[in-house]
């Protein structure tokens, strides 16, 4: 019913965090980077992948909810909000399925980021040996 709202809210937060991190990275770059940091992927780039998953996923899920008539393009947006009895069900779904969605997407992103980092580190070590 309103499960996609949770990952969408997370997407808003991570997008703001990405902008802040990007600004800090730009400032650090102006001051000069140590050589060891040259080939490392920026944290903001990693966060952009999470943003893509969260925005993309919640966007398509919003369409699904529109298809099923669970949301509407005008206030109060959630059709269940017109009936206070149904609101409890919406909050229950948001706190179970919605949170589950946000946690799984973030977890998969974290694992993916860890694997990519390890691979990059390995290939860098390989280059050093050659």
């Amino acid at each position: 019913m309103g499960c996609f709202v949770v990952p969408a809210a997370e997407a808003v937060v991570t997008t703001v965090v990405t902008k802040v991190v990007e600004k800090k990275e730009r400032e650090a770059l102006e001051k000069g980077l140590p050589v060891s940091e040259f080939n490392k992927e920026k944290f903001s780039s990693k966060l952009k992948r999470l943003n893509g998953l969260l925005w993309g996923g919640s966007g398509l899920l919003a369409f699904e909810h529109l298809w099923h008539g669970e949301i509407q393009p005008f206030f109060p947006f959630l059709t269940a909000a017109e009936n206070p009895g149904e609101l409890t069900e919406v909050f229950h779904e948001m706190s179970t399925v919605g949170v589950g969605m946000a946690v799984l997407v973030t977890g998969i992103w974290a694992v993916m980021t860890f694997v990519l980092d390890s691979k990059t580190e390995k290939s860098e070590k390989g280059k050093e040996l050659v």
């Binding site: 499960c3 996609f4 990952p7 992948r49 893509g52 998953l53 969260l54 925005w55 993309g56 996923g57 919640s58 966007g59 398509l60 899920l61 179970t96 399925v97 589950g100 969605m101 799984l104 997407v105 998969i108």
Partner: peptide, 21 residues
């Protein structure tokens, strides 16, 4: 095309949780 990957993977993960529930 990475944009499409993000959209489809994001939605698939979310629908997977929905399917489990």
């Amino acid at each position: 095309i990475g944009i499409l990957c993000y959209m489809f993977w994001g939605a698939s993960i979310m629908w997977f949780v929905d399917a489990v529930a």
